[in-house]
């Protein structure tokens, strides 16, 4: 089974979903992220979904759950780069992911979180 790569950059974690994911890959991402948040003492997780061509109710719930789990672990998740067609479809499906923070791209996510790019 493929796993979504999670990399640590400075104080935050970046998880990039590359392509169409199978349900169990999404579930594994939840577990992996929870473990990495603790291990890295991360306060911020960027979940980059810009390559995702669809988000259905299952993936939508997974995103909401990841955000909720992170909150309990004192970290914040910012969902980055949702495509317009995906966003419209998700809204029509009835999912608005209220309570989940979002950003257009990694740069603005870092600005939102008050982190300057540490190059």
């Amino acid at each position: 089974m493929d796993r979504v790569p999670i990399i640590k950059i400075g104080k935050y974690l970046l998880a990039t979903i590359q392509t169409d994911v199978q349900d169990n890959v999404a579930v594994a991402l939840q577990e992996d992220l929870a473990a990495r948040i603790i291990a890295a003492r991360a306060r911020l997780v960027l979940l980059d979904i810009s390559a995702l061509q669809i988000v259905d109710s299952f993936i939508g719930r997974m995103i909401a759950d990841i955000s909720g789990i992170a909150k309990l672990l004192d970290a914040e998740v910012i969902v980055v780069g949702m495509q317009p067609a995906v966003a419209i479809t998700l809204v029509e499906l009835g999912l608005t992911l209220s309570g989940v923070r979002t950003a257009l791209n990694v740069e603005s996510a870092l600005a939102m979180a008050g982190i300057r790019d540490q190059n």
């Binding site: 969902v79 980055v80 995906v86 966003a87 419209i88 998700l90 809204v91 791209n105």
Partner: peptide
């Protein structure tokens, strides 16, 4: 309203 909601999901 849907547009406002979709824009929010995208981060705007």
């Amino acid at each position: 309203i849907q547009t406002v909601a979709a824009a929010r999901l995208m981060g705007a």
